[in-house]
Amino acid sequence: MQIRQLFIEQDSYPHRLAPTTKLIGVLAVLSLAFLFPWHWTPIFLLVGLFLVAYQARVAKRFADIVFKSALPYLLMLFAMQSLFYPGGQTEIGQLGWFTIYAEGVHYATVVSLRILSMISGLVLVQLITDPAEMMTDLEQNGLSPKVSYVIIATLNILPFMLGRANAILDAQRSRGLETEGKITTRAKALLSLIGPLVVGTINDVQDRAVALELRGFSRKGSRTYLQSFGGTAKENLLRRVLWLLAALGVVGRVITWLF
């Protein structure tokens, strides 16, 4: 199990945009990809996202990650839908005992383009945004500091917990815990692994809570921030355009429903 840190620090226009501006961009991508009635919109979104990645000088890593996370999924989708699409009419080929239907291939293509846009949008925004800055900007835009604490704390705690989990695994094995053999044996071992992990970490909870309280965590009133983001006229315009694009997807869908 590997935890990846996607953010790559660079000096580029997409990097300098406020984190929330980029999030509105993701929202626009999702809305256009999934809601806008024209099936081939995602192609333009993918080209657009790639150009932004290129401008931010993360294109290679971007393409690499999107490809790796989407490939197994897309293979399954094509295999399943082109062979077993219910109501397939037009036969376009044979694969062993199975018939490939044109409708299934078309459906699989449409869905995979949407999925690709979703994955691309989410991956790109993480590649070009520092997670800590993202949380600060979200807080300034109304996100509860408590939610952002939970997210940031989880990201900080994870490597530590992974280490602890591996230590527990080794410790229990050296005490003779059976981690091989019948499935019931292995399932029983689970309890002796998860138990210590949970009890050990929950033990720290009280200390952490006290430490946070001492720093005014649940204090009422507004906070002062060290950093602030955006605010230029150009960026405000961009934000408006992105909101409009996000709305366009919804409006397009509503119109096709009505008529």
């Binding site: 408590k146 604490y149 939970v150 704390a153 989880t154 900080n156 705690i157 994870l158 917990m161 992974l162 602890r164 989990a165 998860i194 992990l197 949970v198 970490t201 929950i202 720290d204 909870v205 952490r208 809570a209 946070l212």
Partner: peptide, 14 residues
């Protein structure tokens, strides 16, 4: 709130 990050980590580390 302090328990939540630990719970999330347990979900993942499990």
């Amino acid at each position: 709130l302090v328990l939540m990050p630990i719970a999330i980590a347990i979900n993942i580390v499990g």
